[in-house]
Design a protein around this nucleic acid. Structure first.
Length: 579
RNA sequence: GCGCUCGUAGCUCAGUUGGAUAGAGCGUUUGGCUACGAACCAAAAGGUCGGGAGUUCGAAUCUCUUCGAGCGUACCA
């Protein structure tokens, strides 16, 4: 990276300057102690390092230190200038040309760091109940989670994506009971969900179960006939299983459509059935971290930093949600993952401490669990926030995707820091104009493709009617981009410094984003990159009379298109050839 | 009450480990298409970084305090 190249130069110069006795009382320098930053004012340079922190040990004023260091920098075609305590750096053409070469050599791999510490990561996200359609909040975890998985893979980690299905609790009974009511209604019976609020909480009154009931009548006709449509003679479990399977299918179809791919859907029920939950409880008992109070068994999680102890076995002998979750995390560790990353809604933040406590109590390293708490999503329509509380006028993720499309939904769901509540403005996301960053970015890609098409296809002169041959045939273009030619490439770098520097940023972007687990940075990057491209486009004509220059700029356009497409690929947003 | 997250331009948000004149998009205003896509570009205006105190040569960033918003504080999942 240019940044590292520059820092290396400066640090070597410091060491030489010290040897030459030019840095006053400074006697040694440890590499890596100076931060490289981007100057606020781009006129100063591409990167800068502030040497003020050396002033104390050298006992010389910062500007003098900077000047002394610059004198010892090995000369190349880059610029090194001093302003105050800053050494500013401006990359020379040779670095820019090298960068283009790197893009051409690595292509889809461009930006992947070398020599990383590879980890085997299990990334868990969404993990919804199979009791109904996804809501908008799930969409945020879906978009961010899958983009994070792509990012971590691109960075070089091994990533296993998992969806934990909460299919074991009482909510499944609730689902089954609700389906029964919908079936009775479909059979013409005059029944409805209870009006009493407390009673009503035992049901899902949303109308999404109506089509499920209709499908049930078709699929289970024989069963219904055998009991003469007397639903009381059918075990509730039949309805539970049916509705659950139906909703799981609905969820998975939507995920496919939303470009979210899981390696495994892990059923909570299977965890119970395997006996792993009971084993976990027994291990906790053996560890002496369980006590009985008021008929329930409590886990002393407060011994491990939780603010209070938690029930692990209810007085009626059943497990709590936490119990299964403990077993699930232990199972992940036993499957050999180095790291577990979970994306949870911020409303689950109280859970982090107790799960970590259980991991520690069972003898594993709690630091292997990393929980990313995501703030929730507000739906905004025409500038007004829409309350998501009531099931009745709930906007589902499917509705949203139908309305604004997969690309825009994915982008908008990923574009904000996970720590901030996301306002999702449907009207804005729908617009195909400059108000919508997705189109801005995609337009840049389409425009780049268009230039290449233009250069490689023949035209008709409107006056003479004669066909004008393309600047380059498709064959020639293919050759141009498959055999990197430094002599051609270097002709365009002078006019495209900012664009090339932005391409270079992709490398540090990947490192920073992967390490901080943030994907909104990718959204910002593609917008910046697109802006540099549009700016370049407006100031510099690609196809000109000068064939060599045209070729050179086409090479640049191709490099841009490749990097933009890589970045969009991480977000799983399409990079269209045309719009 | 306690805990977590947040508070930066009219709006939505960036701001690396404390460093140069606090940035971007939208909106507003002004320019730019008889050549590659104007779904674009160039430029201007717009700020007491919620308030107060402290640490420091230096604070949007660290500490304390205060105000405001969201979420959590189950033998629900």
């Amino acid at each position: 990276m240019f940044k590292n190249y520059f820092l290396d130069k400066v640090e070597n110069a410091i060491i030489k300057a010290i040897e030459a006795g030019k840095l006053g009382q400074m006697s040694e320098y440890t590499k890596g102690s100076l931060p490289v930053e981007k100057p606020k004012n781009p006129d100063f340079g591409d990167f800068a390092v502030n040497v003020s922190s050396l002033a104390r040990s050298a006992r010389i004023a910062p500007p003098m230190i900077a000047n002394a260091i610059v004198e010892f920098i090995d000369k190349d075609d880059c610029e090194y200038s001093v302003i105050g305590g800053f050494i500013n750096f401006k990359a020379g053409d040779s670095l820019l040309v090298n960068l283009l070469e790197e893009i051409y050599n690595k292509r889809e791999e461009f930006g992947r760091p070398e020599n990383i510490e590879k980890e085997k990561i299990i990334l868990e996200y969404i993990s919804a109940n199979p009791t109904g359609p996804f809501h908008i909040g799930h969409g945020r975890w879906a978009a961010m989670g899958s983009a994070l998985a792509n990012l971590l893979k691109f960075y070089g980690h091994e990533v296993y994506q998992e969806f934990y299905i909460n299919d074991a609790g009482s909510q499944i009974q609730k689902l089954g009971r609700s389906l029964v009511i919908r079936i009775r209604q479909a059979l013409g019976e005059n029944v409805d969900f209870p009006q009493d609020e407390t009673e009503r909480k035992n049901y899902y009154p949303g109308d999404y179960l109506i089509p499920v009931a209709e499908q049930f009548l078709k699929d289970k006709k024989d069963l219904l006939d055998s009991v003469s449509n007397d639903l009381d003679k059918i075990d509730l479990q039949v309805f539970c299983d049916y509705a659950k399977a139906y909703e799981e299918k609905v969820q998975r179809d939507l995920l496919d459509n939303f470009r979210v791919t899981f390696d495994k859907f892990y059923s909570e029920l299977s965890l119970h059935n395997s006996g792993k939950v009971e084993q976990c409880v027994q291990k906790l008992r053996d560890s002496g971290k369980i006590y009985t109070k008021e008929g329930a068994e409590w886990f002393k999680s407060s011994d491990y930093g939780d603010d209070q102890d938690r029930v692990i076995k209810k007085a009626d002998g059943s497990n709590t949600y936490l119990t299964a979750d403990i077993a699930y995390h232990i199972d992940k560790l036993e499957r050999g993952f180095d790291r577990m990353i979970n994306i949870w809604g911020a409303d689950h933040h109280g859970y982090v401490a107790r799960v970590k406590a259980s991991i520690e109590a069972l003898g594993y390293d709690p630091n292997k669990l990393e929980v990313l708490l995501g703030q929730l999503v507000n739906l905004v329509i025409n500038g007004n926030e829409v309350r998501m509380g009531k099931r009745k006028n709930m906007v589902t993720l499917e509705d949203l995707i139908d309305e604004v499309g997969v690309d825009a939904t994915r982008f908008w769901m990923s574009m904000r820091n996970i720590d901030t509540t996301l306002d999702f403005d449907i009207e804005l996301a729908k617009t195909k104009s400059d108000e919508n960053p997705v189109f801005y970015v995609q337009y840049a890609h389409a425009r780049a493709c268009s230039i290449i098409r233009n250069a490689t296809s023949e035209k008709v002169d409107t006056e003479t009617g004669k066909t004008i041959p393309p600047v380059l045939t498709e064959e020639e273009f293919k050759k141009l981009v498959s055999n990197y030619d430094k002599n051609i490439a270097e002709k365009s770098v002078k006019d495209a410094r900012k664009l090339i520097l932005k391409l270079e940023d992709f490398k540090s972007l990947i490192v920073n984003s992967a390490q901080t687990r943030q994907v909104y940075t990718i959204c910002r990057y593609v917008q910046d990159l697109a802006a540099e491209f549009h700016s370049f486009y407006n100031s510099t004509r690609v196809i000109t009379e000068d064939l060599e220059l045209t070729k050179s700029r086409l090479m640049l356009i191709w490099a841009f298109k490749t990097v933009l497409s890589n970045a969009l690929g991480i977000l799983a947003v399409t990079a269209p050839e045309r719009m």
